[in-house]
Amino acid sequence: MEASDVLQGGELPPVAHTYRTQELFLFSAATWNPHRVHYDESYAAGVEGHDSLLVQGPLQAVHMFQALSDALVEGARLTSVRYRHLAPLHAGQPVVVTGRLTDVDPDTRSATVEVRMEVSETGQQTTTGSAVVHLDDRAGTEGER
């Protein structure tokens, strides 16, 4: 197996999702995140001017790279990630995660995959990023699978 094979077809199949308020609460609780924009709608709207509760940036990042991890071939793993948030995402807005292979380094058995999350209806990107994926030394060798 080569590094170019880490993602079948070089594309991350689209993964759709809509964040519910319970999900925002659970993530804030699991990460001990007291920021009010994620659970206090009157604060989010009245003080910070958001349309609704704000989806945590790290939660979007986790989902982007989780979608990628789920699509990787056996023996491939994320070794670094990079991401930035481009626009607010609110609870209840349907989003889709997509990605594609953009670079391969045969010497290090690694590949770079760009990923993005965007609002399904408008195409507005909310979070974009990339990951470096490495193939384990034994991945794809005879008898390993």
């Binding site: 001990w32 007291p34 790290p58 986790v62 991890s69």
Partner: peptide, 27 residues
């Protein structure tokens, strides 16, 4: 843990302060 579990440590460890040590917006 899932791959990006470090985000839980970032806030889960460093946000452990008394409630009166939080800004109005939560930081």
């Amino acid at each position: 843990a899932p791959a990006l579990f470090y985000v839980a440590l970032r806030t889960g460890v460093f946000n452990l302060v008394p409630q009166d040590a939080l800004h109005e917006e939560g930081t």
